[in-house]
């Protein structure tokens, strides 16, 4: 009995070692068979696409996902820290917006590459020096609860968040992370510092609720906890298709207004990355019309930008939108100023 239990214990200790030795993550692969991607796109949307890439090419993808609360900024700072320590581990940065990719470019942390699919994208959505490539865009929209708004005046502009009729009934995600931070920086670049600051002061004075993320904002509107809020199309469409009493409004689409902010996903190859060849193959795959069509057809309903993609998003067609004419480079330069002001004056609790 004792001998048997002794043998069982030894076996239990040794088995995991044997199990681990056969594991795919620990076995040595050729450098070209692996690619490390840091992705800020929500895991449930990006994971199936990365799995499809592995299935098609045989290249193993090792992803690092972000959480909603530290969206994008966490991954960007991780890339910076790894570059500073001289050990970059990320090959491809799949950002769900554009400004932080531009900031990495300005810091010299990206390297140019030329994937074959890049030429099929409009010039404003790719870097002339091939440091980054935009695809599959989302729009910053107003999601409003039709039961709470009723037949009264409907919001048409982001300035309506500051309208006294809806005091305390509107919400936005914390504008320090993700697309909301990019939106704030774009407003600072487009409107100028003074007007943008006034807008955020007006938001604060009108008790605009700051919530954890765009997802939460859309859910709160869907549940009737807020009358309307600012969010991304992918979060808004989920509420709409779940049968919640909501409506998606593309803000500031009038002729005399500033337009709706359109934020593409961006892809970039990290400088001195360990697997550059596999990285370029992944970028080329993600820029393909099939992936754009898949992202458009999926739950996130992203808006395709590829010239040859014949699939439209359920949210809107690119041709029907009136995009905000903002210089993303200016917005990237205004990012820190916007974040500092918002932290000091808007998020004072």
């Amino acid at each position: 009995m004792q001998r048997r239990s002794f043998i069982i214990t030894i076996s239990l200790l040794v088995t995991p070692l044997l199990a681990c030795s056969g594991n795919d993550a620990t076995t040595g692969r050729a450098a070209g068979d692996v690619v490390v991607v840091y992705t800020a796109l929500d895991r449930q949307f990006s994971e199936p696409i990365l799995a499809a890439f592995t299935k098609q090419t045989g290249i193993e993808v090792r992803p690092v996902y972000d959480t909603e609360a530290t969206k994008t900024i966490g991954l960007v700072n991780r890339i910076r820290a790894e570059a500073a320590s001289g050990r970059p581990r990320c090959d491809v940065f799949w950002n769900n917006e554009i400004l932080n990719t531009l900031r990495l470019q300005s810091e010299g942390l990206l390297q140019p590459c030329r994937p074959a699919q890049a030429e099929h994208y409009p010039a404003q959505f790719r870097d002339p020096e091939d440091h980054w490539f935009g695809f599959a865009a989302r729009a910053r929209v107003i999601i409003c609860n039709t039961e709470r708004i009723g037949s009264g005046r409907q919001p048409t502009s982001i300035h309506d968040l500051a309208h006294r009729d809806w005091r305390g009934q509107t919400g936005i995600a914390k504008p320090l992370f993700g697309t909301t931070a990019s939106h704030a920086a774009c407003l600072f670049a487009l409107l100028g510092g003074t007007e943008a600051r006034s807008l955020f002061d007006a938001f604060r004075a009108n008790d605009v609720q700051v919530v954890a993320g765009n997802k939460t904002c859309a859910e709160m509107v869907g549940a009737g906890r807020l009358a309307f809020g600012l969010t991304d199309t992918d979060d808004a469409i989920i509420e709409l298709e779940a049968g919640k009493p909501v409506k998606i409004i593309f803000p500031d689409s009038g002729d005399d207004q500033m337009g709706t902010l359109l934020l593409p996903n961006t892809l970039a190859l990290i400088r001195d990355c360990p697997h550059p060849d596999a990285g370029v193959r992944l970028i080329d795959y993600l820029l393909s019309p099939e992936v754009e069509a898949r992202l458009a057809a999926g739950a996130s309903a992203q808006i395709p930008l590829h010239a040859k993609c014949d699939r439209d998003s359920r949210v809107a067609r690119l041709a029907d939108l009136r995009p905000m004419q903002v210089d993303f480079a200016d917005a990237a330069a205004a990012f820190d100023e916007a974040a500092r002001y918002i932290e000091a004056h808007f998020l004072t609790d």
């Binding site: 490390v36 449930q44 992803p63 690092v64 954890a212 997802k215």
Partner: peptide, 20 residues
Amino acid sequence: PPGWSTVSVRAFTLLHFGVY
């Protein structure tokens, strides 16, 4: 490490998007 998430890590990264 990249590509090696455990159940707890996967659950935590998905948790913030809602219980799908």
